[in-house]
């Protein structure tokens, strides 16, 4: 079940991505609506991170193309923000929380320009939004996992972009951080931003996202959450992992989502 939308913010057409000539994503064709919270869901190794990296043109595509705001990606870089996986950087790096958040202004500043007072204010404001204003001068190696995630989020917020790609922002964070992050994401959606989140927890997916992309190397489904998170489609996505599926079935029943065949 792949639902296409009118005037999409992201349009992916026939996208194939390979590592060492071994394809990890096959013929992905999807469109995403503006102002939505999109969850990209699938089992480990399904190519979720690969998909959002390919959307941002961080990985070379074997075939197909991606358009964002109906333009090639190179023309809209300053409207895009990215929250990489927490583990992707060295947290022992000699930098303070504020240094990292200020990086959000680098893209717009351009070459040779230093961050101005306005950029510093924006960075402080972003830190406030994630509840980390008291940690501005803290060395980043002294942060907990949840705090690291908040700092990455603040950096993206400081950028004031229109579309946000987030890779597993809820992985390994405490409950308080998870709640704080989802609140922020909802506020961003209300401001008309589009947020695309790689997520692997099915339990919270129904609650968090209004649009869901189910992925397992091929695109299984893309559409409104309540239409996509069905037992049938989840079975297709997760294959024979019965234990997972039983749990999913229970969950769907509990949350009064009819487990119907579509």
């Amino acid at each position: 079940m792949i639902i296409q939308v009118e005037n999409p913010v992201v349009e992916v057409h026939d996208l194939t991505v390979s590592y060492d000539r071994k394809p990890v994503l096959w013929g992905i064709d999807l469109t995403l609506p503006a102002g939505s919270l999109v969850g990209v869901i699938g089992p480990n190794g399904a190519g979720k991170s690969t998909l959002i990296k390919a959307m941002m043109d961080l990985l070379p595509a074997g075939s197909g193309y991606v358009r964002i705001f109906d333009k090639p990606i190179a023309e809209v870089r300053n409207r895009i923000s990215y929250v990489p996986q927490r583990e992707s950087v060295d947290w022992d790096f000699p930098a303070s929380v504020f240094d990292v958040v200020l990086m959000g202004s680098y893209g717009k500043l351009g070459l040779f320009k230093r961050p101005r007072q306005a950029d510093k204010d924006a960075a402080m404001e972003a830190l406030q939004k994630v509840g980390m204003q008291g940690f501005a001068n803290r060395q980043i190696s002294q942060l907990s996992g949840g705090q690291q995630q908040r700092v990455f989020l603040a950096r993206a917020l400081a950028q004031n972009a229109d579309i946000y790609f987030m890779d597993e922002p809820f992985a390994g964070v405490d409950i308080a951080t998870e709640t704080a992050i989802i609140e922020l994401l909802r506020t961003m959606r209300e401001q008309g931003k589009t947020v695309i989140v790689v997520h692997h927890d099915l339990q919270s997916a129904t609650e968090y996202f209004d649009w869901v992309v189910l992925l397992n190397m091929r695109l299984v489904a893309s559409g409104p959450a309540e239409q996509v998170l069905t037992q049938h489609l989840l079975e297709q996505t997760y294959g024979g992992k019965l234990t997972v599926l039983t749990k999913v079935g229970e969950l769907l029943r509990k949350q009064e989502f009819p487990a119907r065949e579509s």
């Binding site: 990296k53 941002m56 961080l58 870089r77 300053n78 895009i80 923000s81 990215y82 990489p84 992707s88 950087v89 060295d90 790096f93 930098a95 990292v100 990086m103 680098y106 893209g107 950096r155 950028q159 790609f165």
Partner: peptide, 9 residues
Amino acid sequence: FDPAYAAAI
């Protein structure tokens, strides 16, 4: 510090 983020922006 973070080449992936740099490339994205």
